[in-house]
Design a protein around this nucleic acid. Sequence first.
DNA 1: CGATTTTTGGCAAACGTTTGCTATAAGACA
DNA 2: TGTCTTATAGCAAACGTTTGCCAAAAATCG
Lengths: 340, 340
Amino acid sequence: MADVARLAGVAISTVSRALANPGRVNEKTRAKINAAAKQLGYTPNAMARNLRVGKSNIIMIILPGSLYYGVSQIIPQVLQSINKSLIQGGYNLMIANLDRDEISERHILDLAFGGSVRGAIILSSKLPEVDGRSLANSGLPIVSMLLDMSDAGLQSVITNDREAVRDVTAELIRLGHRRFFYLAGPEGNYHDVERYGGVLEALEAAGLSKQAVHRSGGRLDYQHGFDIGVQAADDFAGLAEKPTAVIATSDDMAISFVSRIRRAGLSIPDDLSVVSFDGSPVCEFSSPPLSTIEQPVEEMGRAAVELLLDAIGQRQNPASVRTVVRSKLILRESIAPPKT
Amino acid sequence: MADVARLAGVAISTVSRALANPGRVNEKTRAKINAAAKQLGYTPNAMARNLRVGKSNIIMIILPGSLYYGVSQIIPQVLQSINKSLIQGGYNLMIANLDRDEISERHILDLAFGGSVRGAIILSSKLPEVDGRSLANSGLPIVSMLLDMSDAGLQSVITNDREAVRDVTAELIRLGHRRFFYLAGPEGNYHDVERYGGVLEALEAAGLSKQAVHRSGGRLDYQHGFDIGVQAADDFAGLAEKPTAVIATSDDMAISFVSRIRRAGLSIPDDLSVVSFDGSPVCEFSSPPLSTIEQPVEEMGRAAVELLLDAIGQRQNPASVRTVVRSKLILRESIAPPKT
DNA sequence: CGATTTTTGGCAAACGTTTGCTATAAGACA
DNA sequence: TGTCTTATAGCAAACGTTTGCCAAAAATCG
């Protein structure tokens, strides 16, 4: 920086002000300084800067290991959307894995408490906590995405899972379906609770009993999405009274389920209607093309970043701590009225 | 840190040595210091540390925007594998997007030259370069993954694309196939060149003419994998002499191609054998289950990190600058001898 | 117990910025 | 020409560590 100052014939403090602050320096000298910097190939040292101003420009995204595969269809989109928004705001994106081990938790906490990051977007229901340090009281702005953690006081950007599933179930009922097969995610998982709840609400609204839905799966996490579908197909085969409609809680499990069911000789949608969740592009090319509830991932990513940057900017937005982005039902050939 | 020192009853320099260096301090006092740190909830400031020692502990991964979707099946695995290896080595992973605009290039260069990152793993054939600054001469250790950039002097971790495609083509020839349909990636793309080359080599080895393969696609990048398959299906429909075997260069395009082809009334593998590339799990559940060449993503990620850390550690490894990880052909029902 | 080795204390400089302060210089204006 | 405004210079402290140095203390050993 001193070299740049010398070359531009200005003081070092002026260089600093020219490069960092917007208004403090005359446009002409700023141009001179930029030219000198370019000529010398000078790039300000980000770490020194961050140290001095006491804040980092890195945002970390906390992904539970199990998310990688299970929702593998949407993770790349999430990352791309978030990163794009962040860069526009001058921030960088760091990846933090949250597995079930203490090491990864400690690692995340080190990042948070070590001043490395400025904020976090979390896609896990579990906040890292070990040795008395907890992400919750790290002082970092945090926003949760996909999962509703407003109970824990976190801003949350979510979809209307429950409502969407309720609506699609209602639609199936309208088509004449009376017996359902629900492909569950991990027991207790937020999404699973919401989605199953949506099914039950629709049943109740139609005056149907809870017995109308058979719940399958729930022993594996989303990481094993395909396995869930395979096991569920076995489960289905063993049922005396066959359901006529299937509600799956991820595309992965729907795809493997359908594959196995068709191999067993059943036809979709003639024998069985299927609707799934996530909206991955591959659904369009399944056979038959799968109806699915599309998660508006990009929009959620943008919203999450916006909330986070607001929180960082201290522009307190005491408004709703829960941002709901509407998901979108995509109807394809996998749904039809039941054979009578 | 001063507080910790006071509480532990030691000097501040001792605390520093205890927390950072491995051997320099007695095990007993180290324990005392750790206890004090925990009690106070103290975490060393990473930025100050990095500034002082003049090196960051952040590795950036450079993903071209187009990779996100096209190879969406494998990106999450790449990230997970790399991140896992990095964390074990005490490093963090930062995401850098490389799009076709100058902004993203500048951003990456700022990271590289601003001392923010310690090394880079790049999955793009294009090295960011603007205003005379180039990633190539940033002094950063870089390793390329998926793409062979050893010509540009970069360590490269790649698969044996060409060989794998050659082998599978030879297998198709052995089964009796004589006319092929090749689903291309972007024209000039490294992978496409390699894979197409593999096809041609196999043809030549069998004494077949280049005319035996019809090349389709190549106008879109991998980002539009599904679209490629759709267009190729139209292309296929217009052919007078139908090929009997299809070689696709990504799972996405294979899946959409198969979907459209079957809709047109053709049966796989009776009318048409199909083999694709990537090895995404969904292939097993396509109808019919797709043969595919599996990219050993995790292994490549590990290898890339290992090379990078070696380079950082200055342990010059002047050995082969190209690391080839063998891909794996997974045979499923989508392949059969042609109907005669 | 003396000699030797190991460990720690204390000090201070350094990493590359930002930023508040005062003082000076340069323009603008009347 | 004098006054007011704006822009810059120059200085120095600060951010929170690490690390080399030397001396002091403690532990180990014969």
